[in-house]
Design a protein around this nucleic acid. Structure first.
Lengths: 216, 216
DNA sequence: TTATTTTTTTAGACTTGTCTAAAAATACAA
DNA sequence: TTGTATTTTTAGACAAGTCTAAAAAAATAA
């Protein structure tokens, strides 16, 4: 079907497309820790397979077909993450690299049965939605804690930074998916945010508040 | 660690070593559906990594280190096969190709937890033993039905042919792992074998009798 | 033992995906 | 708008793993 390298490019382009329109060669290179010249070559190849739209110097976007492939990879990644946490009891900061390998296992029958085995979960351990087998998923609007008004109540529902160190920090502060919080105050000096959770106050930095997402 | 190609070579060499001493270039080429010249190159590379013993024109054998790697791959393969059958309810003739991909997932922590999750199974769905994390497994002596005396009783415990078509045939005849059988007669004309199982008689061909293994 | 066949290795080439260095196009600043 | 800086592409090279064709070694037969 598609090579491992091709799948990784499609996933990177999908991810970058969420925050930009056309994705630049350099952005992809940074995302994949490779060089812009390598990206140019691969993007040509993907364009020939009709998985991306590409014109020289104009950046890249996924075609419908390319998006479908990307969403399938993401589906597999997130289902395996769910499996690792729920069935094998890994912690949410430990599963990314393993899922990165497992997402390339190709059988769709396998993935559909895995999905059923786990009861068709809709979100992975980090709160990200799991696309169904047709690539559909519900888009719940989540907001960074740093962007909501004082006295807003919400439920921790996702993260923007998926790094192990950030997830470990959240774990230590008990700021995990599903917790109910209220934004109490923003310190004007450094934009630190004071939250209330389970009747205790927690202070988090501007950075943390930017990367912690809540559903209202 | 080792590349995918390297792992496949080590596994093939291990498998061939079970029935021969030193394995020839041509045998490996046949096993992996590649050419002898490619094998020579790869075997050189594996010799440099001290995973095989190799001298020109003399064939190949695994070193202790190479055997350890091979047994690890086999462990992973068989544990995933067990998972696919026991947890995802695939049939025993459907799992080989999927496990062939999954065996290359590298995390040992993952495999050890998978092992625990399934209750440390000792045999895969085809009756083959699953090595533990140190590469140890018990060698139960199994005999092809074609080699035992008349009136011998035994338990179906393994197969020598793992092809989907053979497994499907056995399934249809209910000749599955764990069934108790008695060898009743060998037809001298074509060496077909008549078995008794659950008080009914079943006739199987010489070929089938050769590939069906029982524990006495 | 010598000749012939078979097996294995060598030599050189190809593909995929990557890289560096240089050229071309675009973007930005004065 | 012209010159400079940045981004992107091109050109050529390299590593891994494979292939074909030819040469070398080993096995077999006469």
């Amino acid at each position: 079907m598609n090579t491992l390298a091709e799948e990784n490019y499609l996933k990177a382009i999908y991810k970058l497309s969420l925050t930009a329109g056309n994705v630049s060669t350099n952005q992809i290179a940074a995302e994949l820790a490779t060089k812009a010249s390598s990206v140019t070559d691969m993007v040509r190849k993907l364009a020939e397979k009709a998985l991306v739209n590409y014109t020289r110097y104009q950046g890249v976007s996924l075609t419908k077909a390319g998006e479908k492939v990307a969403l399938n990879i993401i589906r597999r990644h997130r289902l395996w993450e769910y499996f690792l946490v729920e069935k094998l009891h890994f912690k949410w900061d430990e599963v990314h690299d393993m899922a990165e390998e497992m997402e390339h296992i190709s059988s769709t029958e396998l993935i559909d049965r895995l999905d059923a085995f786990m009861g068709h979960p809709t979100r992975d351990p980090h709160g990200d939605p799991i696309p169904d087998c047709d690539g559909n998923f519900k888009v719940t609007e989540l907001k960074p804690v740093s962007t909501v008004e004082i006295n807003t109540a919400g439920v921790i529902s996702g993260v923007r930074d998926h790094s192990a160190s950030f997830l470990q920090y959240l774990e230590r502060q008990q700021l995990t998916i599903g917790k109910h919080i209220i934004i109490k105050e923003v310190i004007s000096y450094d934009n630190a945010v004071i939250l209330e959770m389970e009747n205790t106050q927690i202070q988090i930095s501007r950075d943390v508040a930017n990367n912690l997402l809540i559903a209202l």
